[in-house]
């Protein structure tokens, strides 16, 4: 009985969450980059990396060189992302990443990807983080830095 109630409540709650599409719905497979591949690029030709997740994640650990752009789920975050990207050439190699939650639950990546494509960026890739930044990047031994 309690489980049925909880399940019904969960469905109701999901319906009132911000109505941004999941990352996997918007970002084409061809635009994805795997963590191992990005880690390799960091050693040779690092792209411009934008973190579009939550600030407390960025402060704990982020990819070296990554710019904190703000969460793609919010209007403020998207405005911050656009302000960061505005000064970049439209053919710049960009990689966005989040890792706040499992990929198909991420509220940030889809909106951030769409915003950059709408601005005219032609080389936008999205770091595919299946579970979260800790498990799929940090625990794999890929480089991170701390701080704001």
């Amino acid at each position: 009985m309690i489980r049925q109630f909880c399940a019904a409540l969960c469905l109701a709650l999901l319906s009132v969450l911000p109505a941004r599409a999941a990352a996997t719905d918007i970002i084409p497979a061809a635009a994805l980059i795997q963590p191992a591949d990005l880690a390799g690029e960091l050693k040779s030709a690092p792209p411009i990396i934008l973190q579009v997740g939550f600030s407390k994640l960025y402060e704990q650990a982020h990819i070296p060189g990554a710019i904190y752009a703000g969460p793609g789920r919010s209007d403020e975050g998207l405005a911050s992302l656009k302000a960061q990207a505005e000064k970049l050439p439209r053919d710049a190699a960009l990689v966005i990443y989040c890792g706040c939650c499992p990929w198909n639950r991420c509220p940030n990546m889809g909106a951030a990807y769409t915003a950059l494509k709408t601005m005219g960026f032609t080389k936008v890739r999205a770091l595919y983080i299946a579970e979260n930044f800790g498990q799929d990047w940090v625990d794999k031994g890929y480089p991170v830095v701390r701080g704001q």
Binding site: Q60, A61, D139, P143, V144, V145, R146
Partner: peptide
């Protein structure tokens, strides 16, 4: 599973990665 690698902004090992 590899342990976390923490580097500072200059790529040096960062000693205070949380346990």
């Amino acid at each position: 599973m590899a342990s976390a690698v923490a580097l500072d902004a200059r790529g040096r090992a960062f000693a205070a990665a949380p346990k």
